[in-house]
Simulated scan of single mutants.
Amino acid sequence: MNWDQIEGQWKQFTGKVQTEWGKLTDRDLDVIDGNRQQLVGRIQERYGVAKEDAERQVDRWLNRH
Rank of each mutant, 00 (worst) to 15 (best):
D26G: 15
R60A: 13
E20D: 08
G15L: 08
E52P: 00
K16W: 11
E52M: 08
G15I: 05
G15E: 11
G48H: 11
E55P: 01
G41M: 02
R27V: 03
E55K: 14
G48Y: 07
K16C: 10
D53W: 05
T19I: 09
L29P: 02
D30R: 12
V40W: 02
V58K: 00
W21A: 00
L39E: 02
D26S: 15
F13R: 04
E55S: 10
W21M: 02
K23N: 12
G22F: 04
I32K: 04
Q37M: 13
Q38Y: 10
N35P: 00
R60Q: 13
Q57H: 10
V58R: 01
F13D: 01
K11S: 10
E52Q: 11
E20Q: 15
F13Q: 08
A50V: 03
G22V: 11
D33V: 08
V31E: 05
W10K: 08
Q38N: 14
W10A: 07
R46V: 11
E52S: 12
W10R: 08
I43T: 03
V17Q: 02
Q18D: 14
Q44T: 07
Q37K: 14
D26E: 15
R60F: 13
D30H: 05
L62K: 12
R46M: 11
K11E: 13
V58M: 04
V31F: 06
K23G: 08
N35A: 09
I32C: 03
T14P: 06
R46Y: 01
W10Q: 08
D59I: 06
I43K: 03
G22E: 13
A50G: 06
R56F: 05
R56D: 09
R27S: 13
V31A: 04
Y47L: 14
D28Y: 02
G34T: 09
T14F: 02
G34N: 04
Q12C: 03
E52N: 08
L39T: 04
W61Q: 05
R42M: 09
R46S: 10
I32W: 02
Q38I: 00
D30A: 15
